[in-house]
């Protein structure tokens, strides 16, 4: 088990190394001179040279890379031009809002999709199953940039139940969380349904029922528990999409998280901040995948025994 943990941990380290290298190379993708792009065409040559030196772009690429990695290891992600403060400080201020939104969406998606998926499997090939399948495909096809404005139109403008935008209490969280979580709920519902269908044909469930256990206990404590591996995989992988979805959702609802910060940084050509934001989201994604791998160890004793 320790070996599996170490292997996964090493793989996580390799992934982070790849991400860091890619993010470093991004600045070198900028067509023309990145410093001129940041300062604008009319910049004074002295300012250009000063910024070029400050960014280390006047040195050979391998030296720049070494400095970049060295600074990262010390927690130095550079200085944001727009906010005139260390990128790490800006990220730490915005990161909790993104996590709050992502975790609320995840919770909402699981609360909806697990009972819906179980119900669709139990009532497979009936009208109820077809409706659940239809709605999950609809949820999969409805992009969050379309859903968000439609929810605002209905629940904020027409019914006035929830605020249009901003961060605050629970009422502010509902519409962004639904917007972000719908896609995940749709995918998970389909996954729970197919995993449960596989499990429902197993003999041990009939035994459990014949022993007098309630239907609810058999479904949720026996069948669902054994269907968890594919579900955990999908939820783990889909969390990446959830993080990518924060760009749109935070932008629609003016949610002050990293997604919106990235877009603002792109708009202002604040490249160190863009690099920091992408790094933060990618590292979170890799971290979630690592936790997903560890979750296998918890839900499947066979993996622990390997």
């Amino acid at each position: 088990m320790l070996l599996i943990f170490l292997r996964r941990f090493l793989f996580m380290g390799l992934s982070i190394f790849i991400v860091v290298t890619f993010i470093f190379l991004l600045v070198h993708l900028v067509p023309g001179d990145p410093v001129l792009q940041m300062l604008g065409e009319g910049a004074q040559p002295a300012d250009v040279e000063q910024l070029r030196h400050a960014l280390g772009l006047d040195q050979p690429v391998y030296v720049q890379y070494f400095h970049y990695v060295h600074n990262l290891l010390r927690g130095n992600l550079g200085t944001s031009f727009r906010y005139q403060e260390p990128v790490l400080r800006t990220l730490l201020r915005r990161y909790p809002a993104t996590m709050e939104l992502s975790l609320a969406s995840l919770l909402l998606a699981l609360l909806f999709s697990i009972p819906a998926g179980v119900q669709a499997a139990v009532k497979s090939n009936t009208g109820q199953d077809r409706w659940i399948s239809f709605f999950s495909l609809l949820g999969l096809s409805l992009p969050n940039f379309a859903l968000g404005p439609l929810l605002i139109l209905l629940f904020s403008i027409q019914l006035m139940w929830f605020p249009v935008s901003g961060i605050g209490g629970l009422r502010h969280l509902v519409l962004p969380a639904v917007t972000l979580g719908l896609g995940l709920a749709a995918v998970t519902t389909r996954m729970v349904r197919s995993a449960m269908l596989e499990e429902l044909s197993q003999d041990y469930l009939r035994t459990a029922l014949s022993k007098g256990l309630s239907r609810r206990t058999v479904l949720y404590k026996h069948a669902l528990k054994n269907s968890l591996i594919p579900i955990v995989t999908v939820v783990g992988l889909q969390f990446g999409n959830l993080l990518a979805g924060t760009f749109v959702t935070e932008s629609i609802f003016s949610w002050p998280g990293i997604g919106r910060l990235t877009l603002q940084a792109i708009q202002f050509r604040d490249y160190p901040l863009v690099q920091g934001c992408i790094l933060a989201i990618a590292v979170t994604y890799i971290g979630v995948n690592f936790l997903t791998d560890l979750a296998y160890l918890l839900v499947d004793p066979r993996i622990r025994m390997e």
Binding site: I16, V19, F22, L26, L29, N241, Y271, V274, I278
Partner: peptide, 21 residues
């Protein structure tokens, strides 16, 4: 494959366009 899978899909595209324009 693993290098590209270290990023959520849309994030990679956003990162690319953010710097290329």
């Amino acid at each position: 494959i693993n290098s590209f899978m270290a990023f959520p899909g849309v994030l990679l595209a956003i990162a690319f366009i953010a710097f290329l324009g």
